[in-house]
Every structure is written in structure tokens, then in C-alpha cells.
Design a binder for these strands. Sequence first.
DNA 1: AAGGAAGACAACCGCTCCATC
DNA 2: CGATGGAGCGGTTGTCTTCCT
Length: 300
Amino acid sequence: MGRSPCCEKAHTNKGAWTKEEDDRLISYIRAHGEGCWRSLPKAAGLLRCGKSCRLRWINYLRPDLKRGNFTEEEDELIIKLHSLLGNKWSLIAGRLPGRTDNEIKNYWNTHIRRKLLSRGIDPATHRPLNDSTSASHNQEQQQQPSSLVAATATTTTISFASSVSASASAAVKQEQDTLTTTSATCNANMFVGIMEKKNISMERCPDLNLELTISPPRHVDEPDHHKFSGIERSLCFVCSLGLQNSKDCKCGYATVNANNVNGSTNSNGNTTTTASGGAGYDFLGLKPGSVWDYRSLEMK
DNA sequence: AAGGAAGACAACCGCTCCATC
DNA sequence: CGATGGAGCGGTTGTCTTCCT
């Protein structure tokens, strides 16, 4: 296609940033805000590529960054999220306030990978290293149509490695409780479809129970927009993921919601509606009362 | 004390996604 | 609807530091 380079490499500095460059970048962003990274270097008087400026700001200079060592809780959360999301570092970073994707990626490669290996866990699959079934299991999943995978899945728990800390175990237990005590039926095929659409590989969730029944729990203070035509109903799994306008919606929310939106719809047609107040479920640490908008994970 | 190995992390590169024209 | 460009992401590399012999 032959696109132009993002900057004139001949006239840009590379390598470590100097204090002066940092100061220039900070003061410029303080004055003008983030964005327009391509034009920022020139405007700020920096001999740097726009991408380099963006990276320096996001990974190092941003005022809301949390520096210092990762806590044990953060460790376990990263492991848990990685088992769900794979190498989606930006998504994982979105669940760890003050941490950047680059930081987490580096930390994973230098610390957690080794930590898991020492526990006898494959960092890539989150299954025991000597588990001969894991490889073939994954292979089967890749070869089979998703519907077949769903039909043949028989495990009943979501496994986040075997030797997690007590606190992480409690968190997992809480999520499992949330997942298994809800009412509406999750169509396994639909779930696989969502996972595929969102690029979440089923390989990453090897033990994920595809026969889960899943929905937000019922709550006495359920907001009115969950009561379709005045009748209280549970959201289907698609809607619970924040994909209320999806054609995969099975609960009818999409249809009803088209006429009764409590939020906004962006140019993609993706609703950014969230439930206000009321019911609480905590899938991946969502605030009580929120419907999971997948994009909200990208918090940078 | 010196030098090599390993670890840690900042930064770069190339690709993809998405909005705009 | 395809081309284009900006922004963001994930993989990889480079360099500095620490550890070990």
C-alpha cells in the first residue's frame, strides 16, 4: 500500500529520553492535552516520533501511574485476567489502575511467567505443564466447529490455575458463585460466537464451562430499562456483555432498548448504555449495577 | 576486582483497527 | 466501497543493572 512513515526518521531522536525532553512533553500535554500525537512533537519542539511521544507519556510520564513493585494481589489478578484474555495487555492493564500495558507485559515476561513455571503451570495455557490432555484438548478445540466444542465440554468450573492465593481464590469463588447462581440460560454456541467475535480465544479458558447459566442476578431495585414492556426479565448473556444491540440478543432487550435507550449510541452502532444503580454483579470486578461494556476495559 | 550471565525494563517496530474522505 | 492516515497494540530488541563466579 506504501503508506508514509509516521515521522521523518532522519530528523528524530531515538533511545532514552532526556529530562529536558520529558519536561517539554509534560508541559505541552498539560497545556494542550493528549491527542494528535503525529503533530505533537513539532508543536512541542521535540525531535521525536509521535509514537515515541505517546509511548513515553503513557508508559512513564502520565501523572496517574503507580510506580513500584507489583503486589501479590496484582500478581494474581494479572494471572487471572491473562487466563481469560490472553495477551491482551491493554485490557489487562485496564483492570489495574495505574499500571500500563507495557509494564504488565514486561512484568509478565520477567516475573509471572517464571512464577507459573515454578508452580508447574504453563503460562500460555494456564494448565499444568505435565497435563498431556491440555495440548490435545486445545488441538481438538481448534479443529472442531465451535458448536461441537460447546456440546462436548463437560467441565464445570472456571479454573484459574491450581495454586492461587487465598484472596485470589476467594475472588474466583465469588465470580463462580455469581456466574452459577444466575437465572437465564446462556446458549453455549452463542457464547462461543461472542468469544470469537471479541477475539477471545477459547484456548485461554480451557476449563470454561460452556453450559453455564449466566445472567445478571435479579435484584429488587432492577432499573426500569430491564423491565421490558413493564415485565421484569433477565438480560441474555449477550446483553450482559454490554452488546445490547447485537443481533445475537435472545432476550429482546435490543428491540425494546431501541425505543428506550438510557445512554448513547456511537457511530458504530455500539451502545454505551450502562445500567444505572440497582442490581450488583461483579464479573471481572465491575461495579455493582453496571452492565459489562467490553470497551470499558480499555481505560487508557 | 573483573568479566560474563542473567534479569529488568524502556523503547522501537510493524501490524491492525477504525474513522474519514 | 476502497484508499488513506492516525492511533493503539503486541512482539521484540537494546541497554542498563545486578548477580555470580
